[in-house]
Structures are given as C-alpha cells and as structure tokens.
C-alpha cells in the first residue's frame, strides 16, 4: 500500500498531518501521540520577532466548532531555531514550518533564517494574517500579492513551498492559481473562517479582537467544497483542512481532490484522532482495493 504524498521535491510518508496552530511545536503532544506516525507536523506560525499574542479571552466554543483569536503568539524565528527545532528535528515525521508575517519582507527573512536548518521539510506560507502595509487586510485576499510573495519565497528555497489559503475571499480559485503561478508546490485549503460571537448580556463580542477564526467540524463542508474547487483549478497538490474528526471526514477531502489532509481542532478533542484517521484511510484502501492513496482523488463519481 502506497500512502506517500509528493509535494514539490519532497515526499511525505503518509497523508495525515497535524495543522499549524493546533499542535504547538510538537513536544506538547509527545506523551499523548506517537509523533513518528504523523505524515507531517505543521508548526505553530513562526514570525520574525516573538509575538505575545492577543488579549484574553482568546477562545470561545461555537456549535460544533470554536472561534480563536490567538494573534500568532509565537517565540519568533530565532528561538524557534534554538529552542523548538532540536526536538522537532529528532522526530521521524516531516516538519513543515508555518511562516507568517505582517509584510512580504517578514516572510522572506523568516524563510532565509529557516533555510539554515537542515531538518525542515518545507514551508507553509500563511497568507491569512493581516498585512500592515495593506490596511490590515489579509495578504491572501490579493492574488497579485500572493503570487509575488510566493515567487520571492520560491527564489529562496528548493524545499517544498505550500501556500495556506484563507477562505475569506470571493473566489479562492483565483488566489490558488496565483500561488501556483508564483511557483508554489501545494495549496493548504483552508484556513479558518471569520466569525464573531456576541455576549448579549455584555453587548460586546466575546473576543476582545471582535472577530476570530472559526474552525472545527462546523466548517468541514466549506473546506470540502473549496478543496473540490481548488483542486480543479490548479495542478499542484491540495492539502485539505477543516473539521476532520474521522477517517470518513478525511476521505471526503481526498475524494474531493485533496492529496493530503491536516487535522486541527480534532486533536484538542481527542489526541488519538490523527492516528485513527490514518489507520481508517488504510482500512478503506484495503477494503476498496486501492493500492495508492493518491488514486482516491480520481474516484469521485
């Protein structure tokens, strides 16, 4: 059975990774999950400087989901390299560094620093963060900016470059094509949806930032639909993300056109889910006599 996934010049051992922002820097889950069984760990977003993150509360639960406003709290690229990479480098699974910034130069300087580390599989470029130079709008809402950023990142590395798209746009396929034209090796689809919860008693949003990112099973149909559309708009692999709680959920993404998936919120709910999703996909392949996980993509009727 072939479970491998080819992204650019790299190969992931299996299609089930854990999503950025839900898995810290890996060590947090070491005693609960067999990390070597993961297809990839997508790190907490790494920015040029350390970021303290947003004010509390940062979380609120929603029907079958959660809204978060963490504010890219992270240790910054230097401490990531000295404090977090040694643990990640010891793991058998691929380490994909999620890179974020408030402007194009931030991303490039982070990637330049990460290039110095030999044990990084590739980069996931988070284009959903607010862009300072563009009035706080996410860079990922502008296909011109996305293409230029990806092209410049491409110029810095031979490692796989994955572009993680925001669903908060009119037509995600336009941005996906921009990422492909810029030289991206894969598309992560999708980041969280913009959402708001209001405390009626207090007459104000529960999150001090107002809005947050909605994730969890509530957004799964959106993720599957956008994976379906994006995978038909580009020829590079698509990594499906959004509300996967079971192997069947992951298979929806694979059938929709994804080459791989990421598990996010579900790890919070039950850390055994990433492992069970992978074994469930393998069981499905055995049952359906599918030799290669990449063939599932073509099976949608």
């Amino acid at each position: 059975m072939d479970l491998t996934v080819t992204i650019g010049n790299g190969k992931l051992p299996n299609p089930v990774g854990v999503a950025s922002g839900t898995f810290g820097y890996g060590s947090e889950y070491e005693s609960l999950i067999e990390l070597s069984k993961l297809g990839a760990i997508y790190s907490k977003a790494v920015t040029l400087e350390p970021r303290p993150g947003n004010d509390a509360p940062r979380l609120v639960e929603t029907p079958s989901g959660m809204l978060n406003s963490i504010g890219l709290a992270n240790v910054g690229v230097e401490r990531f390299l000295t404090d977090k990479m040694p643990f990640l480098a010891r793991q058998a699974c691929a380490v994909v560094c999620n890179v974020a910034g408030s402007g194009e130069d931030d991303y490039l300087r982070v990637v330049e620093r990460l290039e110095t580390h030999p044990d990084i599989f590739g980069y996931e470029i988070n284009v959903s963060c607010p862009n300072v130079k563009h009035g706080g709008l996410a860079l990922g809402t502008d296909p011109v900016l996305v293409e230029r950023l990806v092209r410049r990142v491409r110029g810095l590395t031979r490692r796989p470059v994955i572009v993680k798209l925001t669903p908060n746009v009119t037509d995600i396929t336009v941005v996906a094509r921009a990422a492909e034209n810029g030289g991206g090796d894969a598309i992560s689809c999708i980041n969280s949806l913009v959402g708001m919860v209001i405390d009626v008693g207090a007459r104000r949003p529960v999150l001090p930032a107002g809005c947050g990112g909605l994730s969890g099973p509530a957004i799964r149909p959106v993720g599957v639909a956008l994976t379906y559309r994006v995978s038909r708009a580009v020829s590079i692999p698509v990594i499906g993300i959004g509300g996967i709680m079971s192997a069947d959920d992951a298979l929806q993404y694979l059938l929709a056109g994804a080459s791989a998936v990421q598990i996010g919120c579900a790890t919070f709910v039950d850390p055994s889910i990433p492992g069970r999703v992978l074994s469930g996909i393998a069981d499905y392949m055995t049952r359906e006599q599918i030799a290669c996980v990449q063939d599932i993509r073509g099976l949608l009727q």
Binding site: G24, E28, Y29, P57, L59, V60, I70, C265, T267, F268
Partner: peptide, 13 residues
Amino acid sequence: VMACGVGACMGCA
C-alpha cells in the same frame, strides 16, 4: 477557557 489543555494552542492565556 481551554482548547488543548497541554500548552499547544495558546488559547488559555
């Protein structure tokens, strides 16, 4: 309020 409980999500700051 917590999501992960193990230090990964930075949500309970």
